[in-house]
Amino acid sequence: MSLETVVEDIRDEAHARAEDIREEAEERAEEIVAEAEEEAESIVEEREQAVERQIDQEREQTLSAAKLEAKQQRLEARRDVLADVREQTEAAITTLEGEERKELTKALLDAAAPEFEDDESVAVRGRADDEKLLTEILEDYDGWSYVGERECLGGVVVESEESRVRVNNTFDSVLEEVWEDNLKELSDRLFDDE
């Protein structure tokens, strides 16, 4: 074999080896690119899912906040309506007149009377506008007298120094008790939407 043939064989072998290396490098490069693209797709997908989760979370938070605000506004409106009803009730009680006011006031005095059976003198306070009415009613109660006004819608505050008892039978106290006992029912009747 001539030197030229040996050189040619080495050259051919080197070319073949170089071709194999190039092909292996291309295959490896394609694998790396494919892996990189797959990883990039995975990262994009993860980020998209994270963004979707964040959007869903923010949507839920916004919706919850809006529902809470609406509920608070509804409760505030209900409180306002109930306050208006209470004011109208107080106004109606204040304007009671004549026989109806007399009967209610007498009933409140009668309800307080058992607490003061053994007392010789009993002091009665009431609304300033009811002084004449109270004085007239108290003529039927021995030892009972009107002693001054009490800021209230009507009714009486009865007390005695002998027994150190005080009974608050004002229209205000009765209204407060009835109001508290029946507030849920009243609310249900006014707001029967729930």
Rank of each mutant, 00 (worst) to 15 (best):
M1F: 02
E4C: 09
V7S: 04
D9R: 13
I10V: 15
A16L: 06
A18I: 13
E19F: 15
D20P: 02
I21T: 06
I21C: 11
R22N: 03
A25M: 11
E27H: 03
R28S: 03
A29R: 02
E30D: 04
E30K: 06
E30F: 06
E30G: 08
I32M: 09
V33Q: 14
V33M: 13
A34K: 15
A34S: 14
E38D: 14
E39D: 03
A40C: 10
A40G: 02
E41K: 04
E41V: 11
S42Y: 04
S42I: 05
I43G: 02
V44R: 10
V44C: 15
E45I: 11
E46M: 12
E48N: 10
Q49N: 10
R53T: 02
I55G: 02
D56A: 05
Q57A: 03
Q57D: 05
E58Q: 01
R59G: 04
R59V: 02
E60D: 08
E60A: 09
Q61V: 05
T62K: 05
T62P: 05
L63S: 15
L63V: 11
K67H: 15
A70R: 15
A70H: 07
K71D: 15
Q72N: 15
Q72S: 09
A77P: 08
V81A: 13
V81Q: 15
L82P: 04
A83H: 03
D84Y: 13
T89M: 08
E90H: 09
I93T: 04
I93C: 10
T94W: 06
T94V: 09
L96E: 09
E97P: 07
E99L: 12
R101Q: 12
E103V: 07
A112S: 10
A113L: 01
A113N: 08
E115T: 11
F116E: 02
E117A: 12
D118C: 00
D119V: 11
E120K: 14
A123L: 05
A123C: 00
A123P: 00
V124R: 09
V124D: 09
V124E: 01
V124T: 02
R125T: 06
G126W: 00
G126H: 06
R127A: 03
A128N: 01
D129Y: 05
D130E: 11
D130Y: 04
K132D: 14
K132P: 12
L133M: 10
L133D: 05
L133T: 11
L134W: 05
T135D: 02
T135I: 11
I137K: 11
E139N: 03
D140P: 06
Y141S: 00
Y141D: 08
G143F: 03
Y146E: 02
Y146I: 04
R150E: 07
C152Q: 07
C152T: 08
L153R: 02
G155V: 04
V156F: 07
V156A: 00
V157D: 05
V158T: 06
V158E: 00
E159S: 12
S160E: 08
E161L: 01
E162Y: 14
V165M: 06
V167F: 01
N169W: 00
S173L: 10
S173H: 01
V174E: 01
L175F: 15
L175W: 15
E176P: 10
E176W: 06
V178R: 01
W179F: 04
W179R: 08
D181E: 11
E185T: 15
R189Q: 09
R189F: 00
R189T: 03
D192I: 12
D192H: 04
D192V: 08
D192G: 14
D192R: 11
D193Y: 01
D193L: 02
D193R: 05
D193S: 11
